[in-house]
Computed example of a mutant assay.
Amino acid sequence: MMVNQIPFEEFHMLLSKQGLRVAVGPFNICIHTTHKPLATKLYMLYRHYRLAQDEIAEFHVRIVIERSFSNPLTRKVRFLLDGQSPFESFPLEQALAVLEWGINLAIAVRVNHLLLLHSAVVEKNGHVILLPAWPGSGKTTLCTVLTHRGFRLFSDEFGLMEPHQGIFYPIPRLMPLKNESIEAIRNYLPEVVMGQLIPNTQKGTVAHVCPSKESIQLSKQVAKAKWIIFPKWIANAPLKIEALSDAQAFMLLASNAFNYEVLGATAFQAVTHLISSCNSYKLVYSDFDEVIAALKRLVDEV
Rank of each mutant, 00 (worst) to 15 (best):
L252H: 09
K240P: 06
N71K: 10
S68P: 06
F59Q: 06
H273A: 14
H118V: 00
Q269T: 12
T144A: 09
A106P: 02
A237T: 06
A108H: 07
P176D: 08
G126C: 06
R186V: 04
I241F: 02
M251F: 12
G264P: 07
H12P: 01
I292R: 11
Q217I: 12
R78E: 08
A23E: 15
K36S: 14
H148C: 12
A207Q: 11
T201G: 05
R50Y: 10
G264D: 06
L131Q: 04
A225Y: 00
R152T: 14
S85D: 07
V145Y: 02
L153G: 01
S155R: 09
E180C: 11
F268Y: 12
K226N: 11
A235K: 15
F8Y: 15
Q196T: 08
Q84T: 11
D54S: 13
Q5E: 10
I228Q: 04
A23P: 09
G195S: 03
N187E: 14
T141M: 06
F27W: 03
V64F: 03
S255P: 02
V3M: 02
N125G: 12
A247V: 14
S155H: 05
R62D: 13
N4D: 10
S219R: 10
G195E: 07
A257P: 08
C143S: 10
A52Y: 07
C143F: 01
A267G: 00
P211H: 05
L197A: 13
P190T: 03
N112K: 06
V302I: 11
K124F: 14
M1C: 07
Y49K: 01
I56Y: 14
L15M: 05
R297N: 15
V61R: 02
V109N: 06
K282F: 01
A133L: 08
P86S: 02
L160K: 05
L239W: 10
M175S: 11
P199C: 05
P170K: 00
P7A: 00
D287G: 06
F230H: 07
P91I: 01
T144N: 04
V121K: 13
A184G: 09
A249L: 04
M194N: 08
D287V: 05
K124E: 13
E88T: 13
L80Y: 12
P26I: 02
A237E: 11
R75M: 11
D54E: 13
P86N: 03
G102D: 07
T144D: 04
G138F: 00
H118L: 01
T34C: 08
I198V: 08
E162T: 05
K139Q: 00
T33R: 00
T144L: 04
